[in-house]
Amino acid sequence: MTTDSSGTLTATALASADGADLGRIIATEPLIRTGRNWTRWAGPVISLLILVAVIYQCRQLNLGDVLALVPWSIPFWVCFALSYSASPIAEWVIFHRLWSIPLNGFAALFRKRVSNEILLGYLGEVYFYAWARRNSQITTAPFGAIKDVAILSALVGNVVTLAMILISAPFLGSLFFGKEASAFGWSVAFIMATSLLVMLFRRRLFSLPRKELWVVTGIHFLRIAATTGLSAYMWHLVLPQVELIWWFLLSTVRQILGRLPFLPNKDVVFAGLAVFLIGRESEIPSLLAMMAGLSLAAHLAVGALLGASELIREGSKA
């Protein structure tokens, strides 16, 4: 097997490899990097889009109103930082196990999250794929791993949601009625159908070894449990008069509502449910608005910082 001076596979190496060797060559050789490779400009373009989205959405954020409601206590901010970072931390653990990615992979994973949140769902996966292709320390083809991790994230979320629905079925049955009952039913059917399809075609969909798939699944479960618990504790810190168990219940219900694709006005439904369970009609809407505004502010701040830093770095290379 031979490569040229840039580490790119030569035609001789590819021509002399049989089918099995070809898959091994593609999986172990450094990835092709040429001036026409789209991954060279995909990262800067997505970073520029993030900055544009940040500037646009800053017009919708009244930071003063948000900060006026935030409790200035160390436990709250520690919980918020952990909750916001849970997804990048979980994914860094996964990809460090699969690829041994360095610590600077955290920046790419935070950009991935911000891209999905303020631009377009799964655009972050495109960015992270481009980053992995350009990272000299990653020598395995990244598409299969990123695809498997994304599918398992959705599948684990679906399984957790279905389990929560079964546990709280009597309670949810009294909550949804009329048109909302129909939307709720179709949403549950959709989640079950997509989950079954993934399981039926798992041999074709997944490329990672079975052991790694189980490890990734376990990490996703831990991430969901951590974010659910941290959300409940943050709400308790804002309104400590309400017992923590009620916040855990509401955090669980929010997890359910967030995964239902056809249910309209999810935020309205959740706010109404929170008021129904806890009362405090004047405080619950303010709390939920504050948490939503704080999350948006975090997305905008992280997006602006990381987007600008990547554009500056790429500009210095030019």
Score class of each variant (00 low, 15 high):
L109N: 01
P88K: 07
L103D: 02
L120D: 06
K112C: 11
A107W: 05
W77F: 15
L69N: 07
C79A: 12
I94A: 09
S87H: 03
P102I: 02
R113C: 00
R59C: 07
S85C: 13
R97L: 08
E117G: 04
R111W: 02
A53W: 02
V114Y: 10
L109H: 06
P102K: 04
A107Q: 10
V114D: 12
A53G: 00
W72L: 12
L49Q: 11
L119A: 12
V70M: 12
Q57H: 12
L63H: 00
N116F: 04
Y56W: 12
S85E: 09
S83Y: 09
I94L: 08
W77I: 10
F80I: 03
L48K: 05
V52R: 01
V78A: 13
S115K: 08
C79T: 07
F95I: 01
L67Q: 02
D65E: 14
S73V: 11
P88E: 04
V114Q: 09
F110S: 04
L61P: 03
A81H: 05
L49A: 15
N62E: 14
I101Y: 00
S87Y: 08
G121A: 11
G64M: 09
I89N: 03
V52N: 04
I101L: 14
S115G: 13
E91T: 09
G105E: 01
H96D: 01
L119C: 12
F106Y: 14
I101Q: 02
G105Y: 00
F80N: 09
R97Y: 07
A108G: 11
R97M: 10
R59I: 13
R113Y: 01
